[in-house]
Design a protein around this nucleic acid. Structure first.
Length: 428
RNA sequence: GGAUAGAUGGCCGAGUGGUCGAAGGCGCACGAUUGGAAAUCGUGUGUACCCCCAAAGGGUACCGAGGGUUCGAAUCCCUCUCUAUCCGCCA
């Protein structure tokens, strides 16, 4: 959410931001401003009516028996009129609130401008895609030959886009989370496991609603939603609080199962572990001061941590700076990390790192008191993948496979795999 | 699923229809006292919004959330959420 006063004072800037994000046809700023002005007019008049009514009510106690009926009648009459105004006010306010909920964040001036993913910019490539001296197998073949999965059987039990992996691969999945949790702990993050169920309100707080309802699992019997990421939960964990500046920054390493309907992905990535309805994610989430230099610093820090994760896993990757039209409503600035997948001959997303500035905090009403000027301000929030499995297993298995079908375990991961250097049926 | 009790400011806690934004205490901030500290004393201590060019000032709303009754609600009624306890259930 943006500040309406900021919007009105910076109409051209906001219009420009809307255009860059592809929202210029969805949000009409003049309409929004007019609505705001009408609401204020109504507020002013209804508040002065309330004032008069309060004064009358307070005078009743000390009024004589003769004057009392007249005062009551007058107060009642004002009450009727006031009720009508308040109904009108509620209507306008609801309209205004919805428009504000649909207003995207303004993009960073650093972000590349463009309508869709074709305008995303590769900032750097790290590591070199491996030259195989044999024909590399894809991750599904590797899983089959090593008895690492039950993909066909689990589809019968749980439906499409689900996965079951077993033996060393199942342990590898959990090992990766432990590696990342250790790294985040070393960086001062608080490890936290959170539920995967959520009420509706946090979905508005995160900014997933009112935009993408189709992507969310909903349980009508309990009026509850399944979370697609721990970001959803962590973003609302401190909602409505006024934090002490000394508590900041708050760094969460949140682990949770994640659920996504993948309704808009029909036909895409149907093979294997790339895109599934339920997966596990360790999420990096930061709450910091309302200072763009500070949150941009944290944005780079989160990016650096996830790059280090891919380096620990010894995966070649590229850092993509996401353009204004591709980054989604909540975001100020976004990087994606993509790891090299040999059999697809391309980089595929493993991490998504975003600075949300105060856009989410305005929705969750999460603030802090600034030490310097004593004022209450909205915090900045940021989020990034720590690691998401099983998706990352795709580049991992394919990049580290050997000619005999075994898979090499990078050194940094070996302590989490009982010291093993290779896994697979032919591993010694 | 059934039953009971409860939810008040940063915290504890009083308040069952009328100057209650809310007693009292704790905490916190500032000041006095002190060589310094403790103790003590004094003062202050919510948020959002509207009017106002702004400041000063004035006003409205908020006692878990939403609705209702009333001239008037923290207080009465309804619905919901959450917490605690007991019973039942627990692949």
């Amino acid at each position: 959410m943006l500040d309406i006063k900021y919007i009105i004072a910076n109409k051209e800037l906001v219009r420009d931001g809307l255009a860059k994000k592809g929202y210029e046809k969805i949000i009409n700023i003049d309409e929004l401003e007019q609505l705001y002005l009408n609401i204020n007019k109504l507020k002013t008049s209804s508040q002065s009516m309330s004032e008069e009514k309060n004064k009358l009510s307070n005078s009743i106690k000390s009024a004589s028996n003769e004057e009392r009926p007249a005062i009551i009648a007058k107060s009642k009459a004002i009450g009727e009129e006031l009720k009508k105004e308040l109904e009108e006010l509620d209507k306008l306010q609801a309209e205004f609130d919805l428009m504000m909920l649909k207003m995207p964040n303004m993009p960073s001036p650093e972000s590349p401008v463009g309508p869709d993913d074709s305008a995303n910019v590769v900032r750097r490539k790290v590591g070199t895609p491996r030259a195989f001296d044999f024909e590399p197998k894809d991750h599904v073949e590797l899983m089959e030959m090593n008895d690492w999965s039950e993909m066909e059987r689990i589809a019968k039990v749980s439906g499409s886009r689900t996965y079951a992996i077993k033996n060393e691969l199942a342990r590898l999945e959990l090992a990766m989370h432990m590696l990342v949790l250790d790294k985040l702990t070393a960086n001062g993050f608080t490890t936290i496991t959170v539920p995967s169920i959520s009420k509706e309100k946090p979905l508005y707080g995160q900014g997933y609603l009112p935009f993408s309802r189709d992507e969310i699992y909903y349980l009508p019997q309990d009026d509850i939603y399944l979370s697609g990421t721990a970001e959803l939960i962590l973003n609302s964990l401190r909602a409505d609080e006024i934090l002490n500046e000394n508590e900041l920054p708050i760094l969460y390493a949140g682990f949770s199962p994640c659920f996504r309907r993948e309704a808009g992905a029909a036909g895409k990535d149907t093979r294997g572990l790339t895109r599934v309805h339920q997966f596990m994610k360790t999420e990096q989430f930061v709450i910091c001061k309302n200072d763009i230099a500070e949150s941009e610093k944290w944005h780079q820090k989160l990016l650096a941590i996830s790059e280090e994760v891919l380096q620990d896993l010894e995966l070649p990757y590229q850092v993509l700076e996401v353009c204004t039209g591709d980054m989604g409503a909540p975001k100020y600035r976004q990087y994606d990390l993509e790891a090299w997948v040999p059999t697809q001959n391309c980089y595929r997303e493993t991490h998504s790192c975003s600075n949300i500035t105060e856009w989410q905090a305005r929705r969750t009403n999460l603030r802090y008191r600034d030490n310097a000027d004593g004022k209450v301000k909205y915090v900045h929030t940021l989020n990034n993948t720590g690691i998401a499995t099983p998706r990352v297993l795709v580049p991992f298995l394919e990049n580290h496979q050997q000619a005999d079908g075994t898979v090499r375990i990078p050194e940094k991961l070996q302590p989490y795999m009982m010291g093993k250097k290779f896994i697979g049926k032919n591993a010694k």
